[in-house]
Design a protein around this nucleic acid. Sequence first.
DNA 1: GGAGAAATTTGAATCGATCCAACAAAAATG
DNA 2: CATTTTTGTTGGATCGATTCAAATTTCTCC
Lengths: 361, 361
Amino acid sequence: MASLIESQARPIRLADIAKAAGVSHGTASNVFSRPEIVRAEVRERVKAVAEAMGYAGPDPKGRLLRAGKVNAIGVGTTEPLSYFFDDPFARVMMAGISEACDATGAGIALVSAANQEKLAWNIQSALVDGFVLFCIEGGSRLVELTRERRLPFVALELGFEDETVSAIGVDNVAGARLAARHLAELGHRRFGVLSLGFADNRTGLATPEVIRTAVYTGTRDRLAGYFEELSRFGIDTGKIPVYETENEEKSTRAGLEAIFAGPERPTAILAMSDRIALIAIEWLKAQGLNVPRDVSIVGFDGVPDGALCDPPLTTIVQPITEIGRRAARMILDFDGAVRRETMGVELVVRASTGPATKGRA
Amino acid sequence: MASLIESQARPIRLADIAKAAGVSHGTASNVFSRPEIVRAEVRERVKAVAEAMGYAGPDPKGRLLRAGKVNAIGVGTTEPLSYFFDDPFARVMMAGISEACDATGAGIALVSAANQEKLAWNIQSALVDGFVLFCIEGGSRLVELTRERRLPFVALELGFEDETVSAIGVDNVAGARLAARHLAELGHRRFGVLSLGFADNRTGLATPEVIRTAVYTGTRDRLAGYFEELSRFGIDTGKIPVYETENEEKSTRAGLEAIFAGPERPTAILAMSDRIALIAIEWLKAQGLNVPRDVSIVGFDGVPDGALCDPPLTTIVQPITEIGRRAARMILDFDGAVRRETMGVELVVRASTGPATKGRA
DNA sequence: GGAGAAATTTGAATCGATCCAACAAAAATG
DNA sequence: CATTTTTGTTGGATCGATTCAAATTTCTCC
């Protein structure tokens, strides 16, 4: 009963302690934030009073206003919050961000929202010193929203051309070329591409028009890399089906059905993410197709799951953790400059790719 | 250049806008927080001025102090921040917490720290309305620290007896009994227990003394459940080796070595977490032992990985996501009451357990 | 004992907003 | 046209702390 009444009462402020202890609030403040400059006797008295009155210590809300710095970075996405804990790519990225934050003692605030208005509000009201943005679906809008906060921010993946936003990403063209060359060198000539979106909220077979007017240059560049390299092997890239997935199960399966429905079944799949590739492997196995004997597949990202699945996934490995670390540091040590960093990628050959066989599966 | 200078200048405050637009700060505030009560003409003028001066909108730092509510919950642990993205149990729990936060539009602030002082500081200065605490190693200290903040908080896992702290956990005794009975009914008579810690920072073979003076009642209860049930089958529990692991690879392997070093090799392992169980399966396979033919193993938790490993893990499934959801809601809808909820668990039999064989492996 | 230095303490100003009682202006009513 | 109502605006108080120049106390040392 007493505790209930007590808990409903207005919380005790530093000023209350100061008055009760008979010191100024300046001194009371010092007792907590710079105890060494307060005379021991006074310090103990104030502390005793605080203890007796049940003071919880200086409220960070008050301190914050004065200090200006929150000492936390916001990580934003248009996906629901659970994305950070479910998606393998996001998780590895978060591990890198965590590392940088742990090192400096900064906190992490997760920002997201189901719908657009809430997202806007959450971005506007997040208590952070800057943002790291996961630019997936709706990335452009996320960047616009964040820009209005006028806080430092970094976009992950060089998803768009705007040179005024800081970003860290990988060389998508080079990575895609590595993937394509690997398959071409194994003798593959019939391909299918499981793509990411070329613009917001897209899914389905991509027309040349869609590809040409791509908003997401990351997707565009990966495709360009695939096609450039395949052309060098004399392959007619115009005939390659490119299916835009939403990087999840449903649209990826639809894409596979579309790609394998045609008369010229591919012997190799280029997937723009490991997640897509993993889903594809499951689908192919369920169809009774052997990977890599019947169909080879190369992913993109290099998430840990790729090494553990069956067969282990050949993929283009990005330095995801390092990207996360750098992004976080860019915010933590912000100096006002716009930075755009491009990281290298490498081809890691595992067991999901093998020589092309002549026979139809 | 210009932008650099601009960015270093003192940020524009609402008061600056008010002055420039020739209105009071009260009206300027209303333009942003309750636009509908401001005359359209004035509203547009103020907005135009704000736009022209590059005002970023009301600073949440200022608003916060007045509003009192942060609209975010803190999730605390003594592990490094990456724990939230690595540990399978934590991830499922976070998914539940995320769900509840998404539903109400609340944010999540991750709080952690490598060392004790930083942890204290991070807990003290986190801008949140309440905490959900992962009480693993050092849980008691985490609770003490959090209690001082005098904000609502919930401990996950009923790790200690203190009835004054809100907590959500599972019926550990019942769960452990299910696991033990399952193995006993399969004919197993020689057991080994891979335990969690009975107190902070412990590892190694647990003596009866250690078990009796356990700080973590969760661990204690699980062991009690195992032993109670095994006793009913006439098994001498005094002879069962109990090894305290740190729920990670190194100590778990050490535990397995210790348990399998004796002359009476167990035919069944009771693991107090799926993570431990999964590591154990790997270890057993590496030793050339077949699971479940040579050794059966039952986990505890019910994380998704358990269903995917080889062989799939028989385990005691906790409603982890639901626990997370409830914990978050307890903070979000805090009403001043201390709540302690015990959730049910169930045995899920997969392929890591089988009948005991007479022959030594 | 007193001058000067060093150590503490004070209290007003500030951080950036929101709230609200009081007031002013415009609109509706008699 | 005077009075009431409605609608919009104002500016001081407040949220809970920190900061810093100035004032005060205490300490040193001759």
